[in-house]
Write a protein that binds this DNA or RNA. Structure first.
Lengths: 213, 213
DNA sequence: CTTGATTTCAAACATCTGTTTGATACAATC
DNA sequence: GATTGTATCAAACAGATGTTTGAAATCAAG
C-alpha cells in the first residue's frame, strides 16, 4: 500500500473534511466518516489517534489546499497599489467562495468564526501575514491614515469579502435565484474593489472625515 | 408561582440561550442547561417538549430582545439619506456586537451563518425588512444604480458591520489588546459610515466605475 | 516458505445523550 | 378537608457516541 493515492488515511481525511464542513465537529460522527471513506470504524483511532486530531488534520489540509490552489500573487515593483488591492480582494474571495471542492472554504470559515483551541494558532498564523499584506497596500493608498484607521479599513475590505461566505444562507433568500446565480467571484470582486477604491481615493484626496450632508 | 419573573421556564430559556450561544445546538446538553437553571432534568421536556423546541424559543427570545433593545429608528421626511444610513449602521452594529447580555447576538449570528431548518423562516422574515430599508436608503443615495448594484452595495455595508461579530476571534489576535479595547460600537459605526459614504458620494458624483490607476 | 511488523476488521466497552416514567409535593377549587 | 390539576424530582431508559480490544489478514523482507 503505502504510496497509493487513495490510501486509507487519505480517504478518511477527505471524507472527514466533507462531513466536518457540513455538520461541524460535534455533530459529525466517526462512524459516518468511516462509512463514507469505506474504512473500518477503528481506522480513525489507529491512524490519527482520536477524532480531534483527525479534525485538526482536515483543517490543515483544507487551508493548505486553498493556499496552493489560489496563491497570493507576488507583485513586482511596477505594480500599482490599486492593482494589488484588486488582486488581494479577488484571491481572498476565490479562497472563501470558490465553488469547486467547496468543503475546504466551509471548514475554514467555521474555524474563523469559532476557532477550536487546537486550531487557533494555525488560523492566526495563516491569517496574520495576509493582514500584513493588506495593511501595506493600504499604507500606499491612504498614507495620511494612522494605524487604527488602516486596520479598520482593512476590516472593512475583508468584511465585504467574507460576508458572501458567512451570510450566504441569508443572501440566498434576499435576492432572486437568477440574481444569485450571477454572483460569480469576478463580479463580486469587481464590485468590492470599485466600492472600496472609490472610498480610498476620496480619503486620499481629502484628509478630513466627510461631514454629514 | 405562575407570575414570578424567575419561573422555571424563564430560567431555563435564559440558561439555554447562554449555553446554546456558547457551544451551539449539538454540543450544548440538556443536563448542563438544567443545572445552570437550577431545574430538574425533566423540566426541559415538561415545559418545552424537547430540546429542539427549547432552542427555537431561545432564538426567538434572542431576536425579540435585540429588536426591543435596539429598535430601528422611525425617520421623519426631513431626515437626510446620509443620516438614515448612519443610524442604520449604528443600530445594526449595536444589535450584533453589544457587549451587555452578549449571548443574544452570539446566538443570532449562529443562526445567520447556519440557519436551523426550524429557524430559517424566522431568520429570513426578520432580516428581509431591514434589507428593504437599507435598499431604500441606497436608492436615495445612488439613484443611478440599478438593483444589482444596490444589492451588492447593501451587502458591502452589512458585511462590514457583521464582520466584527463573525470574525471577532480573529480580529482579537490581529490587533493589540489596547486597540481592540478601543473598538466601541460608536467608533466602528463612525468608521463604517465614513468609509461607505465616501464611496457612495463618489459613485453619485461620477456614474462610471473608476478606472484603475 | 517463514518471520515480523503493519493494517484491517467485527465486536465489545464505557460513557454520555435526550427522553420517559411514576411517585411526590404543592397550590387552588369545591 | 378532600379533590383536582400542575409542577418537581430522582431514577431509569434506550440509543448513539468515541474508543479499545484481540484476532485475522495483509504485506515486506530474510
Amino acid at each position: 500500500m503505502s504510496t497509493e493515492t487513495d490510501a486509507t488515511p487519505q480517504r478518511i481525511i477527505e471524507a472527514a473534511g466533507e462531513i466536518f464542513a457540513a455538520k461541524g465537529f460535534e455533530a459529525a460522527t466517526v462512524r459516518e466518516i468511516c462509512t463514507r471513506a469505506e474504512a473500518n470504524i477503528a481506522a480513525v483511532n489507529y491512524h490519527f489517534g482520536d477524532k480531534q486530531r483527525l479534525y485538526i488534520e482536515a483543517v490543515k489540509r483544507a487551508h493548505h489546499g486553498r493556499e496552493l490552489l489560489f496563491p497570493m500573487p507576488e507583485w513586482g515593483p511596477e505594480v500599482t497599489a490599486e492593482t494589488k488591492l484588486a488582486d488581494f480582494i479577488l484571491t481572498l474571495l476565490k479562497r472563501m467562495t470558490s465553488p469547486d471542492s467547496g468543503w475546504e472554504g466551509e471548514l475554514m470559515s467555521r474555524e474563523i468564526a469559532r476557532p477550536t483551541e487546537a486550531c487557533a494558532e494555525l488560523a492566526r498564523e495563516s491569517i496574520r501575514p495576509h493582514f500584513a499584506v493588506l495593511n501595506e497596500i493600504l499604507a500606499e493608498l491612504i498614507p495620511a491614515a494612522d494605524q487604527l484607521e488602516r486596520h479598520l479599513t482593512a476590516f472593512s475590505i475583508v468584511g465585504q469579502c467574507l460576508h458572501y461566505k458567512f451570510a450566504d444562507p441569508v443572501i440566498r433568500q434576499l435576492v432572486s435565484a437568477e440574481e444569485y446565480a450571477g454572483y460569480h467571484v469576478e463580479l463580486l470582486a469587481q464590485h468590492i474593489t470599485d466600492f472600496s477604491l472609490r472610498s480610498l481615493r476620496a480619503r486620499a484626496d481629502n484628509h478630513k472625515p466627510p461631514a454629514r450632508r
